[in-house]
Nucleic acid binder design. Sequence first.
DNA 1: ATGGCCCGTAGAACGGGA
Length: 258
Amino acid sequence: MKIATWNVNSLRVRLGHVLDWISANEPDVLALQETKLSDEKFPVAALAEAGYEAVFAGQPTYNGVAILARRATLGAPTAVVRGNPLFPDEQQRLISAEVGGLRIVCAYFPNGQSVDSDKYQYKLAWIDALTNWLARRDAAAPATVLLGDFNIAPEDRDVHDPAAWQGLVLCSEPERERFRALIADDFVDTFRMFDQPERSFSWWDYRRLGFRRNAGLRIDHVLVDARLAPRVVACTIDRAPRKLEQPSDHAPVMVELS
DNA sequence: ATGGCCCGTAGAACGGGA
């Protein structure tokens, strides 16, 4: 079973890349962030034709998340929850559903803009609320996979230039503390279960030739319930779509479960 | 050189992203 996440930075612009990528990689589940689409504009038909059932929570212009499930292997997602019941929010950043015997939680964490901004305080509160909500989950419920754009580089090795980024948003210690608290004993960062190339990143700035210089950050993550860890056989970042014309600034991250 | 690019909503620049 293959489970992937991808911040597409506009599903309208990136629909072709998404269709090509799912055709080439055949993920069973694909979580999308920054669809930037109101729900009536979601490309249900194109994805259905590609073999995927979608659930989504969108709004105009900003944010927007979705979970795609491969119909042939999984059918449609069920028990869909939009947002966090503990954190009423007009920004569409969270959707979860049961797929293939798992609880898939697709998250688009706030960016935070800068550590002295109101948006940073909103980011910290949003993360705390997510942590609290996930901590309350029923032990009898399906095992959880939490994946998406966390907008946090957990460690210095996830940053192309740790000195330049020291203390800045995405790398600040309060954000990293919250990443660790979210994981605690409950989740595993699947990427770090395996030997990985040095300087592995999932996002590169459009400016200043960020991708060519590999000036990136690892901010997109797939966390699995600790009891799923024995089933994880791989976690990889696919840089290929970042090389295409008019790419998303994020790369897909994919986990394979046995 | 402290900004560079990209997206959506505009219907010109601007907010937001990271």
